[in-house]
Design a protein around this nucleic acid. Structure first.
Lengths: 224, 224
DNA sequence: GCTAGATTCAAACGGTCGTTTGACCCACAC
DNA sequence: GTGTGGGTCAAACGACCGTTTGAATCTAGC
């Protein structure tokens, strides 16, 4: 903590904001709470970030950019092999954010709840950052999945990517409900690599399921 | 609309609140916006609901209670047969909220984004309602899944329920990102029953995947 | 027609919010 | 020493928030 005192103001604000946004939400956290926790003057936020929206965007970017860089690196490594393994693609998508759970124990729940929740935040400043950071990534992964599953119809592939993102975001952002479901038997404090393996296996099996074809809907009860 | 004018104040408030909460979020929507849209006096909110938190809780309950009633009805119907089919259990969970998409076209996005997002809302009033309404439901479904998949280790089952909830919530709440991923090729406006079939098949395949066992994590790259 | 209770109304309350201002501090170049 | 500019500070601004009040209005029952 002796070091924390000498940290530059800008980072102290980001750290405090990340923590409080994660615990309480963006709109429910005031700049006064953030600057009080960071032991910094209220006006410093506007000096360094321009506005509250600017701070929100920077809080998100600070974590999202390295995560996405690692995702792309893992994806390229997976593509370097001759054939693309579905599991490798999925792991490239879900592992980087989950591995951040190994960071400082105090910060981790706040940070990750924040990231998981940001996906569903209607706030325009939040959506703008996510759109900018995630759009090229989505295109890259869509192409990789197409190569890994050439037989799967495009429509079905998109829907399954959608399901996949939901499962990942919920895993990242909402440990609480897992504990509720399992009545305390499961939690994110178990080995992270095992959690990743569980998620990847679940998703891979879903992606490999036979596609739902036209005319099948009415008959699905009998056919399954 | 001639009828809408004669609707009781209480329902006019709920309708307007549902719409605005869905579009903008709970904290970002003021009671003044809600009462203005409902063409109702500001104080009517406190007369009918006690407080803004009371209104939020009622907005959620109005949709959640019938959905959960239908979920339980479908689940009991599925259990009435001798053996529990996994697909029937999953459909009982995901179909009721998705079928609400058939309601009035204007309202649907707002309503469902609201429900999907509420899961990740840290606001205490929101969490209290969800906890109360979802806890008994989670226990019922956990038992049904145990019967449908007796060979699956409990730990793995809980994790997969978690993944499942995430995929469902994201499907319900975030059509926007699906359109983004698919570059406009997919959307929730396709046949709802087919969407349900897609989701159920994806989830069922995930649930049926072999469990991740101890000691497997390090070797998973080679074994898969 | 009158009363009692339920509902609606305009107006204001105190508080908190994001933002702005202008003075102040201090390290460093000249 | 002096000026300069990046950074910090306390204080205030106007706007908007959820909530409260007390009178006005409506609706039944007698």
């Amino acid at each position: 903590m002796a070091q924390a005192r000498t940290k530059p103001t800008r980072e102290r604000i980001l750290d405090a904001a990340e923590r409080l946004f994660g615990e309480r939400g963006f709109a429910e956290t005031s700049l006064r709470e953030i600057t009080a926790r960071a032991r910094v003057n209220l006006a410093a936020v506007h000096y360094h970030f321009g506005s509250k929206d600017g701070l929100i965007a920077e809080v998100l970017r600070r974590r999202l950019v390295p995560i996405n860089r690692e995702r792309l690196a893992l994806l390229e490594a997976a593509e370097a092999e001759g054939t693309i393994r579905l599991e490798a693609v999925l792991e490239a998508l879900v592992a980087p954010p989950l591995r951040l759970l190994h960071g400082a124990a105090r910060e981790r729940t706040a940070l990750l709840r924040l990231m998981g929740r940001a996906l569903n935040e209607p706030h325009p400043a939040v959506q703008a950052v996510l759109l900018e950071e995630l759009r090229p990534l989505a295109r890259r992964f869509a192409r990789a999945l197409e190569r890994a599953l050439p037989a799967l119809p495009a429509e079905e592939r998109f829907w399954r990517m959608h399901f996949c993102v939901g499962a990942m975001a919920h895993t990242i952002g909402d440990e609480f409900r897992l504990r509720l479901i399992s009545e305390g038997q499961c939690g994110l404090d178990e080995d992270v690599e095992r959690t990743i393996a569980r998620l990847v296996r679940f998703l891979a099996a879903g992606f490999r399921a036979p596609a739902v074809v036209c005319g099948e809907v009415e008959a699905k009860c009998e056919s399954l």
